[in-house]
Computed example of a mutant assay.
Amino acid sequence: MPDAGPCLVFNAGSSSIKAAVFDQHLVQGLTAEASGIGQAGALRIGDHVRQLGLPDHAAALDHLMAGLAQAGLPLSGLGVVAHRVVHGGDALTAPAAITPQARAAIADCAALAPLHNPPALAVIDHIALAAPDLPQTASFDTAFHATIPEVARRYALPDLPQTAAIKRYGFHGISYAAMVANWTRATGTPLPRRLLALHLGNGCSICAIRDGRSVATTMGYSPLEGLTMGTRSGNIDPNAVLRLVDDMGLEATHDLLNRRAGLLGLSGISSDMRRLGQSDDPRARFAIDHFCYWAARHAGSMLVAMGGFDAIAFTGGIGENDKTVRQRIVASLAFAGEKPVQVIHAEEERQIAADAWQVMEPAA
């Protein structure tokens, strides 16, 4: 590929937009973030932080792009803008250029990832309006799990038009793809044939990776399924959900399960594992116990999916930084034999940039 401007990577969430710049050799440059969107916001460009009102994503993007331009990175100087998109559904199972068809497919999946796909679309549309000739690409958290076999993907539901899209898609795929791609560089060892990979942060999942491919994962139709998370409940009996809807209504139940459950709901204190670890409150200790127990229990199901395991890897904010949580989960799996344990720094933005340059290659 001939020399081009850098790649600007966006990772848009419900209350923040993160950005990072990479050259064609995947060397990271400037990073930036608009956080606290809809609240008392803050804008960070490099090491410079200032507080300001960010009432919505449009305002946050305006401030973010102005800050990047002032730092010497106007849109006109970029080669490509790349986006993290949580849900690609069945139509988008590999990194892709943003075309009208791709944008429509992302929008079609908005109901499946309501906290993530709409903000990503807002950023995509903002860039398209401001710089219509600037190429854009997307990487999808669901794409890495397209290799999961049907027996692991399908829920036990009949074939009906209403159930066609109800399946286990899996998430955190960009993180797992980066782990596989960067394994040897990060660890100095060959990629294990059967890798038990745990992405533990505010959102949590486990992936069974065999021969570099996903064969099972704990998140399913949505990022709500699986482990105890920061504010998400993880697994819960569907009839319990129906009961909550009857008692509380649909919107309140959605809010409860996604934003008020998990570590926050169990402790009544915080969704932040660091804060809970520093607390003497019995509820905080129970929340941590619950988190570790269910992470290990779900990990056991991943061992079955792979027929055993050859190594364990942790990534994500909790996975990388909380040694006690790692030790407790590993200790619970000791019955399966002692295995090498690696801590891998999450490099999702770098992976998205790598995907973008690969998508751009045919056009070079």
Rank of each mutant, 00 (worst) to 15 (best):
R210W: 07
H63W: 14
A32W: 02
Y293V: 12
E348R: 02
T228H: 01
I127Y: 04
V27S: 15
R193H: 07
V343K: 05
L227K: 05
N11T: 12
R154K: 06
A296K: 11
L43Y: 08
E338H: 13
L196G: 03
T187R: 02
A122S: 14
H57D: 03
V325I: 14
I37V: 15
L61M: 14
C109Y: 12
S214D: 05
A356E: 02
H116F: 01
G268S: 08
I206V: 15
L303R: 13
G308H: 06
A105N: 02
R274D: 07
A181C: 09
I98A: 08
P340Y: 03
A110T: 15
V215I: 15
H126S: 10
W183A: 08
M229E: 00
V9S: 05
F286Q: 14
H199F: 12
T99R: 12
L134I: 09
L276N: 00
Q101E: 15
E150Y: 06
A177V: 07
S332C: 05
R283Q: 11
G212V: 04
A296V: 07
E150K: 12
I37F: 13
G316E: 11
A128Q: 14
S139Y: 02
R153F: 06
A111T: 02
N202L: 08
N11M: 10
H172P: 00
L134V: 11
P6C: 11
G277F: 02
N239Q: 08
A164Q: 11
T324P: 01
G77T: 06
A331I: 12
A363N: 04
L200N: 08
R326H: 01
L196S: 01
G89S: 05
R154A: 14
R232V: 04
R210S: 07
F144I: 09
S267I: 01
A364Q: 10
T218G: 03
V241E: 01
A138R: 08
A252N: 13
D281V: 04
G173S: 11
G5R: 00
A32F: 11
I106L: 10
T184M: 10
P149S: 13
P192M: 03
Q162M: 10
Y221N: 14
L134S: 04
T142G: 11
S14F: 09
L43K: 08
C7S: 12
S271F: 00
T324D: 15
G249L: 11
